[in-house]
Each structure stands twice: as C-alpha cells, then as structure tokens.
C-alpha cells in the first residue's frame, strides 16, 4: 500500500470502504489526522472503530475493501491486552523486531520512561496488568512512531490504574508528539485526552469535534458526544 508522509498529515484516508461479506463496516470514510494530533475514536460496538484501526494498522489482510489510505511506515499498535510474549523477558519484549546495538539501550530508556526502569529482566507473568500495559506502551514508543494506534488500551485496567495510564499516555504524547488514534468507548477518556474526538456510526463519521486544550467546557463536549452515541 502506498505510504505518504506529506507535511503535516500523518493519516489520509479517502473513501475508505471495508466489509465482511454483505455487511459494510466502513462506508466510504474520509479521515485526515495531522502530525502530532491526538484523535479519539468513539462509537458503539459494531460501529467500525476496530475495523478502522485495523485498516490503519494494515492488519486487515483478506478483508474486502476499497479506497485510498496513506499512513506512515513508523507506526505502532497498542492492543487492549498488553500482548507480551510470555517467554521473552520484559526488555526483549520491548525491543522485539528491532535491530542494531542501540536497540537495547533505547529499550531501557523507554522502560524508564514508563516507570519500569530496573524491571528489564522480569518475565511478563510477574507484572501486574497495569505494568504489562506500560511495557506495551514502551514497546510502541521505542519504535519512535509517527502514528500510534491504540485499541482500547486501558479497557482491561482497574479505574485507578486507568487514570495513571491516561496521564502517562498524555505525557508521552507531549514529549514525543506522534499522531495518536485512540479507540475507546469511554467518553470521559476521549474528552480528557484528545485534541479531537470522532464518533463513528455504521461506518460513517457522524461527529468530528475539536476539543481545545484547557477548555473548561468538558461537560458540554461530553453531553454532545453522548447524544451522538445515542445515550442521554
């Protein structure tokens, strides 16, 4: 697939269509994400959120579809499960697939950044769920992505851990400025983290709403988004 890193645009999807059998999941969707922009993607189950994320991750081999898609080569994915190889130590998980003598050094730095310095030799099984997800974040970071795709990365975490992870993600975004597409069904999470919130419904974008940083009208955004999701 063509790769495009034209200035200021990290993702450009034009009339993107994906379907499973007769069911159309993404319906001629247009989407642009600017470099460094933090976009949250909301939608009910079956709205096509995951399909869109998988399309951007080019993980949808064998899925029927059409349209044009330009995504950076340097992209990484954070899944809902930390998806660490249980037979590889934490550092080896972080640098999985990386080459060169600096890879391990960079891996250590990334681990330190997510607050897991010193746990390089631990097995994933020895870590808590939150720590495992931190390792997954480090694994994404160390690749210096221009685009970070996150599929409900905090969905399986307890409320306190989730808040801490959200802060960490914001911090990392501020420091490294990748474009982020965060799939979530937590409206508050979307409003708190993103520069822009998109709501997907039956494969189309029904809301595309910028959330200015520092704006105090979070409640208004929340209400609007919930209404778009058919709640409240």
């Amino acid at each position: 697939m063509a790769t495009d890193t034209r200035e200021l645009t990290a993702v450009r999807a034009t009339t993107l269509t994906r379907g499973f059998g007769a069911r159309i999941v993404l319906d001629s969707l247009d989407l642009e994400i600017a470099e460094g922009e933090f976009v949250a993607l909301l939608g009910r189950s079956g709205s096509g959120k995951s399909t869109l994320l998988r399309a951007l991750a080019e993980l949808d081999d064998g899925v029927a579809g059409s349209g044009e898609l330009a995504v950076p080569v340097e992209r990484s994915v954070v899944f809902q499960d930390a998806r660490l190889l249980p037979w590889a130590r934490v550092l080896d998980n972080v640098v999985l697939g990386l080459d060169g003598p600096q890879a391990r050094e960079r891996g250590r730095e990334a681990l330190a950044e997510v607050g897991l310095g010193g746990r390089e030799r631990a097995w994933p099984n020895e870590l808590s769920g939150g720590e495992q997800q931190r390792v997954a974040l480090a694994r994404s970071l160390v690749r210096r992505p221009a685009l970070l795709l996150a599929d409900e990365p905090f969905g399986a975490l307890d409320a306190l851990t989730r808040i801490r992870m959200q802060e960490l993600l914001l911090e990392l975004h501020a420091r490294h400025r990748p474009a982020v597409l965060l799939v979530t069904h937590d409206v508050d999470e979307a409003v708190a983290l993103a520069d822009r919130v998109i709501v997907l419904d039956t494969g189309r974008i029904v809301v595309d709403r910028p959330i200015p940083r520092g704006a105090s009208d979070a409640a208004a955004h929340r209400k609007h988004l919930l209404a778009a999701l058919g709640v409240g």
Partner: peptide
C-alpha cells in the same frame, strides 16, 4: 493468533518470527 498479529505489527521477518514467536511458543 494474537502473537502472530503482534509479530506483523512490529514487522518481524519470517526467520525472526520462527525464532522468537513460533519456536518458543
């Protein structure tokens, strides 16, 4: 299959996939 997917997203070569994912698994 989730590990196979992970290997795809981090761009593992076939040889590395065998060595780091398939064989240990």
């Amino acid at each position: 299959a989730r590990y196979v997917e992970l290997a795809e997203t981090v761009g593992l070569s076939r040889l590395r996939f065998v060595r780091q994912v398939a064989l240990p698994g």
